[in-house]
Nucleic acid binder design. Structure first.
Lengths: 195, 195
DNA sequence: GTTTTTTGAGTACACTCGTACTAACAAAAC
DNA sequence: GTTTTGTTAGTACGAGTGTACTCAAAAAAC
């Protein structure tokens, strides 16, 4: 009976268009009409996939989480190299990751004053924290984490540092700050193995 | 001839009302009518002080910078204690500082897609960087910065860490994260004096 | 007193917003 | 073929937006 049942692909395509709109026009551009135009569909079709704008914004955060996790799962290295690649998925090093991060920050800031959106934003934020704890664990197993250091403290400090590097990278234009971001993170990880 | 010439006090009062609106309602609440209502004045009076909404947003960033700098100038301690107090002015430890930080992040994120607002946001961001460089310099002069460490690297890392701590503090509710933020920063500063 | 300037309140315009409809068209399932 | 479902286009509503006016009231300066 149904004409087509690619509901998942449709919602994903809409959410990806939303991310592009968020990076180009910011929060004010994330409207039903604007996203529908970016996705190349009718506004009514969008509202069939997402009944409210809140559902759309929530799914955007979900999509970002899914994309980051997918990239992390696809990594095939181990030890320190894995930690490097893991954390690099959270920095705005190329167009794709910058797109995700800008969208995440825009929606995250919105969640500060939109209580409905907070749970989704907090979930994504918690994911970053888990990744940093995992990074410390992997370093420990690889013998690249000095036994005298406090794993819990270092995980939290790494998380804050990572967020700070990412934010500073956002203020700078596109790729200008890719080098400094990489070297600072690498240098910090190096230090974890020593004193 | 003029009725009153307290133009500066008026603009400052409006901008302070804007910060309150930004924290309570977010960017979407920063409208001419909304801010005028919060400031307790007529919308026409607001538009006499700020001809465009862009001028209002720009002055909000200016006001935040002025307030932070004023607090820093008022500090009367030296050495490590000065560094502590200096950096604490940039963390959301109480209502006033959280208000400023939320407003700053809201406008900063807006500046990502509003090129007119970028210069003001970048100026404020640069101020944070200068504060971190000053912090490292003060620590060095006080003998609390190990000679083996790289001042430039440590200043940049401190800046990223500070931003990250601040952002993480924002996602957490109000004062819940004040303790962890303080201890993490203190511990990091302690380490700068050693290895 | 009069004059001058700012404020306050109100109104208006053209626009966009989220949301909710309708009606016509297209394609797959039976 | 018919039926069922999804897409499209269009319209409509009430609300909010930035911006731009007008006009009466109020207060300081002369």
């Amino acid at each position: 009976m149904p004409r087509r049942i690619d509901a998942e692909a449709r919602t994903a395509a809409i959410a990806e268009a939303s991310l592009r709109v968020l990076e180009r026009d910011g929060l004010s551009g994330l409207s039903v009409r604007g996203v529908a135009a970016e996705a190349g569909i009718a506004a009514a079709s969008l509202r069939r996939a997402f009944a409210t704008q809140h559902a759309l914004r929530e799914y955007c955060l979900q999509l970002i989480e899914n994309r980051v996790i997918a990239r992390m799962m696809a990594l095939e290295v181990t030890g320190r190299a894995l930690v490097d690649e893991l954390l690099l998925q959270l920095l705005p090093l190329d167009k794709e990751r910058r797109l995700e991060l800008v969208a995440q920050v825009q929606l995250g800031v919105l969640s500060l004053t939109d209580s409905e959106l907070r749970p989704a934003a907090v979930r994504l934020s918690d994911g970053v924290g888990r990744a940093c704890h995992a990074a410390v664990r992997i370093l420990t197993e690889a013998g690249q984490f000095h036994r005298g250091r406090d794993p819990e403290y270092e995980a939290q400090r790494l998380r804050a540092l990572l967020d700070g590097i990412a934010m500073n990278g956002l203020w700078s234009g596109e790729l200008k700050a890719a080098g400094p971001m990489l070297s600072m993170l690498a240098r910090h990880l190096d230090e974890l193995a020593e004193p």
